[in-house]
């Protein structure tokens, strides 16, 4: 029994340390957003605010337009992108889950092959900018790369084949229901778990995406929250000019730039923390692994 207690203690210590490593950077980020600017300049960032101050957040409340616009764009793109992408992926997954559909293997291969091979950044970029001219439009956040993922399509298809017996579909057909009626009235209501899981993944993917913004967006007014955070971090002048563009009464010296950066980052993470419990719920069901094969 003694050996067992020792064993449990060691396991707890290992996980406690690992959890600390996971959480300390977040603590530093939050603490930095709540520390007074002068204290940051003097003592640097720390795990606990050396001099507590909400000045960064007060400043954001005073100049809300600066991040409201970016936040609005992120929310719009995330909601619309997730909705459209779920519809398109479900419409793809259902027909190829039907064993009686002629050419289903050819279609499934067309989808699957996109997981193995891709044309790369250069042709994609040239096509989207020259043919579709999506540079500096919201379409650039929604469409390239993110809308349909073969991985999720196959995940949804596997769910359909495993959970919707073909007898159910057969009997609905005998009752005279059309294909779309069957899909809408029988298949969709049965697939809430998988649509929930994929939906959560897509919400996170759209919210976190900054690559499309990096390559297709050059207009500051169209920055999503991630692109704005990215620009602030890489360009130390950006925050100053952006604040002064919103309100030219602000003196550069009055901007608590060290803390402000971190406050914006904290606000950018909040939606992820909100979706986190849902993510965990679906993730724990193991919907992501092995489910794709088959």
């Amino acid at each position: 029994m003694r050996a067992n207690r020792l064993e449990q203690t060691v396991i707890h210590i290992i996980f406690f340390l690992f959890a600390c490593i996971c959480l300390i950077p977040f603590a530093v980020l939050i603490s930095a957003s709540l520390t007074s600017e002068s204290a940051i300049i003097q003592n640097g960032y720390s795990i606990w605010p050396s001099v507590f101050s909400a000045e960064s957040y007060r400043f954001l409340l005073k100049e809300p337009m600066m991040i409201l616009n970016a936040y609005g764009i992120s929310i719009f793109v995330t909601v619309l992108g997730t909705a459209v992408s779920l519809i398109m992926m479900t419409l793809l997954a259902y027909p190829i889950s039907r064993k009686d559909l002629p050419f289903r293997n050819v279609i499934a291969f067309i989808i699957f092959f996109t997981m193995l091979f891709n044309g790369g950044l250069v042709p994609t970029y040239l096509m989207y900018t020259n043919v579709f001219e999506i540079k500096n439009t919201l379409t650039a956040y929604l469409v390239p790369g993110l809308l349909v993922s073969a991985f999720f399509v196959i995940l949804i298809r596997t769910f359909f084949t495993m959970n919707i017996p073909s007898e159910v579909i057969e009997s609905a057909k005998i009752d005279g229901a059309g294909e779309f009626r069957i899909f809408y009235g029988i298949v969709l209501p049965l697939s809430k778990p998988v649509l929930g899981a994929v939906g959560i993944f897509q919400i996170i993917n759209y919210w976190n995406d900054w690559f499309n913004g990096l390559i297709y967006i050059t207009d500051n007014k169209l920055h999503s929250i991630q692109v704005m955070l990215n620009t602030i971090l890489l360009n130390s002048q950006y925050l100053m000019t952006n604040v002064q563009a919103a309100d030219n009464m602000v003196e550069a010296g009055d901007i608590p730039s060290h803390g402000l950066k971190m406050a914006i980052a904290v606000i950018g993470v909040i939606p992820i923390l909100i979706t986190y419990p849902f993510f965990q719920k679906y993730f724990a069901k193991g919907l992501t692994v092995g489910a794709v094969k088959g």
Partner: peptide, 28 residues
């Protein structure tokens, strides 16, 4: 199965544009 094929159109069209056209574009 006409209806099932119609359902496939938006997704397949997207993959053709987003994935297959750039594959051909690799000739650049």
């Amino acid at each position: 199965f006409k209806m099932l094929y119609i359902m496939l159109i938006p997704g397949i069209a997207y993959l053709l544009i987003n994935n297959y056209v750039p594959m051909l574009g690799m000739i650049i």
